[in-house]
């Protein structure tokens, strides 16, 4: 009990500080509009009135936390979940390509890592290009992926919308890299003594892989998966921006910024943060179960 309190307290303290700063920021940034409006109407405002007005504007520069909370609440429970105005609907759209892209990226990352560990040629050729691939700004690359997957008709080929394909590819593109790096380290983690031990049993390379290298890499894999799942979400959202902005949290943010709806923008932003947190918690939960079954210390 005491342990839980001492862990939660610092988090709450930081959260409290952020909220306080945020309110201060809202007042400071929104006060100008309040004052300009009041002057135009020829009204004199007290300080309290100014502060109160900064928190109820329709199009504030920086919405107050409670305004965002209300917008978020309305977006999540105020609409039927499958309505196009519901953040749940758009969250699900984003989650779909995040999850598909994440799984693809994990698969590609693991396969490449196995290749890199077992083939010197792949070690020399794949790793540098994998590193270079991650230095290209994704916002620059995303539109090209969209255009290419559209003109190649990748979507029709697998029976889904083209828009979905490009989002998924971008999510996979961002998530394969941490998995690759983590798995290469993990597959190489067994020391000489452990590989010697298997040699004394005349174990084959495949047996060494399944009994030693793969299980030894699992803790490294999970560390990478948490990074990869967050990267996949970023990829999916970025992928939604240049796709004509129809569905998904990224599309919601784009619409909101184009049509001057800061409350919606902030609500979508928080919805994606909540989604990211949920995904990382889910991966963490799977990790705990898996590692416990593999005898990890509590």
């Amino acid at each position: 009990m005491n342990g839980a309190v001492s862990r939660v307290l610092p988090v709450l303290a930081v959260l409290g500080a952020i909220v306080v700063l945020w309110y201060a920021g809202s007042v400071a940034l929104n006060a100008r509009l309040t004052l300009v409006t009041a002057e135009r109407q020829g009204v004199e405002l007290t300080l309290a009135q100014v502060v109160a007005d900064t928190m109820v504007q329709d199009r504030p520069r920086l919405p107050a936390p409670h305004q965002v909370a209300v917008a978020l609440w309305d977006g999540i429970v105020g609409e039927p979940p499958l309505s196009k105005r519901s953040l749940v609907y758009h969250g699900l759209m984003t989650l779909q390509s995040t999850a598909t892209g994440f799984l693809m990226g994990v698969l590609v990352g693991i396969l490449l890592a196995v290749g890199v560990v077992y083939s010197r040629v792949m070690d020399l050729s794949v790793m540098p290009w994998a590193v270079i691939s991650q230095t290209i700004p994704i916002v620059a690359l995303a539109p090209m992926i969209v255009v290419l997957s559209n003109s190649l008709g990748l979507g029709e080929a697998v029976g889904v919308e083209n828009r979905l394909v490009s989002k998924t590819l971008i999510a996979a593109y961002l998530s394969f890299f941490p998995v690759l790096v983590g798995m290469v380290t993990g597959l190489r983690s067994p020391d000489a003594m452990q590989t010697d031990l298997l040699r004394t049993y005349s174990a084959t390379g495949a047996q060494a892989f399944w009994t030693l290298r793969l299980p030894a890499s699992v803790p490294y894999l999970f560390a990478s998966l948490k990074v990869a799942v967050a990267a996949a979400l970023v990829g999916a959202i970025v992928g939604e921006l240049p796709t004509g902005a129809v569905e998904g949290l990224g599309a919601r943010m784009l619409v909101a910024s184009q049509f001057g709806q800061p409350l919606l923008m902030w609500a979508s932003l928080f919805a994606s943060a909540i989604l990211a947190g949920g995904l990382i918690l889910a991966v963490g939960g799977i990790e705990r179960v898996a590692l416990r079954r593999m005898g990890a210390r509590e």
């Binding site: 031990l197 009994t211 030693l212 299980p215």
Partner: peptide, 9 residues
């Protein structure tokens, strides 16, 4: 070997 080298998993 010098170390037990048991697989922790």
């Amino acid at each position: 070997f010098q170390a037990a080298g048991l697989y922790p998993w």
